[in-house]
Design a protein around this nucleic acid. Structure first.
Lengths: 150, 150
DNA sequence: TTGATTTATATCGTGCTCGATTTAATAGCA
DNA sequence: TGCTATTAAATCGAGCACGATATAAATCAA
């Protein structure tokens, strides 16, 4: 197969040559694949990511969750309130530093992890890719993110 | 460097092993890099994508734009109304088939292409990656999207 | 031709996302 | 101590994204 020239101004302006669009549309595709799996847990995809972070390490501040997920407090605060209303987490002001809010799993939120344990395999199957290949691509995209955020 | 085992249930549930999260966060990173460049054009990133599609091929229906961008009419309709209000496009019901809306570039919208011509290079520079590598990664991510949407 | 079905777009409600700003608490310093 | 600066989270407004539904036009079938 011949290489496509992607250096001319005209070629540079084509949607199909945009790495950003590949990422953007793959992200939407992932969300759609997750939807039926997460409906079982009553979670949206971003809410699921928050739960994953808390399952890894409980009792975190809004700020540390935001650092981990690359999200602002203006995004997290309403999301966390919804998760709290659902009974999956608790939000409590830190005694020692009242500026911070400590986010913790509830019993229900902790238990949910078992129910969620089938999700990752479901996603891997949906890609139909080999775990090793998934891992490699993940590394490359994560590296790209790092470059973009410099 | 030793390979990381990513097959155990515990490892599968870690955020840093999620391809979807790499994609999700890289997408946000792209949006942030685009922001200052697109502010010059008074466009958001999704609006820019619509304009790119129209610059490639003018006079398209809402449906064809949606197919190209993987977006629903419920997303596009309000976006197109904003682009229309800005004077970049026009929306006219098709004479022959009144169900369809034909989206066309205005003079201003067409002219904007020149002003936008610097954007792709700016993004490529922001990644700091070689064009060939960008192209390869783009292909892989686009292939992933295709797999997910099967 | 009429009635049912399909198609194209729009509308509505919910939730995510950000930037700018606000509020409140802590830390630093004269 | 008391004033200022910084920090953490929350609030607000704008825009994106989807699923479910509505509306209206075109197509199909009897």
């Amino acid at each position: 197969m011949a290489k496509t020239d992607t250096s001319s101004p005209e070629e540079l302006m084509k949607l199909d040559n945009f790495l950003c669009f590949a990422i953007y549309s793959a992200n939407h595709a992932f969300t759609r694949v997750y939807k039926p799996l997460l409906d079982e847990l009553d979670l949206t995809y971003p809410q699921y990511l928050v739960m994953v972070v808390l399952w890894e390490k409980d009792d975190q501040t809004v700020g540390s969750l935001g650092e981990r997920l690359f999200l602002e407090s203006s995004t997290l605060t309403p999301m966390l309130k919804r998760l709290e209303a659902m009974g999956y987490i608790s939000r409590v002001r830190d005694r020692a530093d009242e500026r911070q809010v400590r986010v913790c799993l509830t019993e229900t939120g902790l238990t949910l992890k078992e129910k969620a344990s089938a999700v990752p395999r479901g996603i891997i199957e949906a890609t139909g890719m080999e775990p090793a290949e998934i891992g490699r691509l993940k590394q490359e995209v994560a590296a790209l993110r790092t470059l973009l955020l410099r």
